[in-house]
């Protein structure tokens, strides 16, 4: 009764994903085009900052949306990468690309250490371990000399890219950030749509079954954790160069909370959600800065209504309507 399927049958399996794959490509082109023309309409500095946060949120979403791990300490990688990048550029005098690499590598190592401890536990315990480790490292940042304590590291030189291009030029800096953001975004897209991403999906869907098929699931979770921390670090390091500042804000727990909010508003487990979410949140903070502390109340209300009413987030809701 063993009969091989004719090849045509195997080929006929694919069609349903065809439209969706194209929709993602179109959305990517729209996003890239939008980011290319946007600096002609609004402040480039705001856009660069937003792209850094968007990449940070995308990195966070890789973990929560595609592995199902809620890290509540992602500020650790974002913040420490920005400290090391700032220090490398200011004190060691490294060129900006090497400073960013230094920060990114720092985040990768921190991610490996924190991840190896955290993935031993699941659910709320996993979140608590990531939070505890992040807070521990926050206190280090507060106490250590090189971080500048409450002052942070200020007046970080943007320097010359590859020793050649002056990044004090806003247009040059913008192009660099755009490249880093789009590159990071595409990397995450690739990770999700790779053989590795397929296993992550299986683990999220049914971990005991994945184990019974011989997958050492902890190893996959750890790799995903390190990748997420590394990309978050890249975002933080870039932000330090762009804003010429690394401070306690970036390493403290409200930053970990903010990235949760950004991903949630945009849509967990959607590739564009965190981008949309971080732009919406930053725009809101920016526009509502006149009302002062009330911005936090408004954020709180948005958070609650997202969880209660629009759990899929902005992009998730649109995608659901598009499919339905």
């Amino acid at each position: 009764m063993v009969h091989a399927a004719p090849p045509s049958q195997a080929a006929a399996v694919k069609p349903p994903s065809f439209l969706r794959a194209n929709a993602e490509a179109i959305a990517f082109v729209v996003m890239a085009a939008g980011l290319i023309v946007a600096p002609f309409f609004t402040y480039p500095l705001f856009l660069m900052q937003a792209m850094c946060f968007a990449l940070f949120a995308c990195a966070f979403n890789l973990l929560i949306g595609y592995v199902g791990l809620l890290s509540f300490g992602h500020a650790l990688y974002f913040g420490w990468a920005s400290y090391l990048a700032a220090h490398a550029a200011k004190v060691w005098g490294l060129t900006p690309e090497l400073a960013i690499l230094t920060g990114t590598a720092t985040a990768a190592i921190l991610g490996l250490v924190a991840g190896s401890l955290a993935i031993r536990r699941q659910g709320i315990y996993f979140a608590m371990i990531t939070l505890a480790l992040a807070q521990m490292m926050f206190f280090f940042a507060l106490q250590m000399k090189f971080t500048g304590g409450e002052d942070g590291i200020q007046a970080v030189p943007r320097g010359y890219l590859f020793g050649l291009i002056d990044l004090k030029n806003e247009a040059a800096m913008y192009i660099v950030v755009l490249f880093i953001f789009l590159g990071g975004f595409l990397l995450i897209y690739r990770i999700i749509h790779s053989p590795f991403g397929e296993v992550l999906k299986a683990i999220r869907e049914n971990e005991p079954r994945a184990i019974s098929l011989g997958y050492k699931t902890d190893r996959y979770k750890l790799i995903a954790f390190v990748l997420s921390a590394t990309i978050a670090g890249c975002a933080g390091a870039t932000k330090a160069i762009v804003l010429q500042l690394a401070s306690l804000t970036d390493v403290n727990w409200p930053m970990s909370g903010e990235v949760v909010l950004m991903s949630l508003v945009g849509g967990l487990g959607t590739i564009f959600g965190p981008v949309v979410g971080s732009f919406v949140i930053l725009l809101m903070q920016y526009k509502l800065s006149v009302v002062g502390e009330w911005v936090l109340v408004i954020q709180g209300i948005i958070f609650v209504s997202c969880v209660l009413l629009f759990r899929r987030g902005i992009v998730g809701e649109i995608a659901a309507r598009f499919k339905g």
């Binding site: 749509h193 053989p195 991403g197 296993v199 098929l213 997958y215 790799i223």
Partner: peptide, 17 residues
């Protein structure tokens, strides 16, 4: 998912699905 574990490229996060 089962086949790819056996043939061993499950760690490749840089390759296309």
């Amino acid at each position: 998912i089962a086949l790819q574990r056996l043939r061993g490229n499950s760690m490749d996060f840089w390759r296309s699905r």
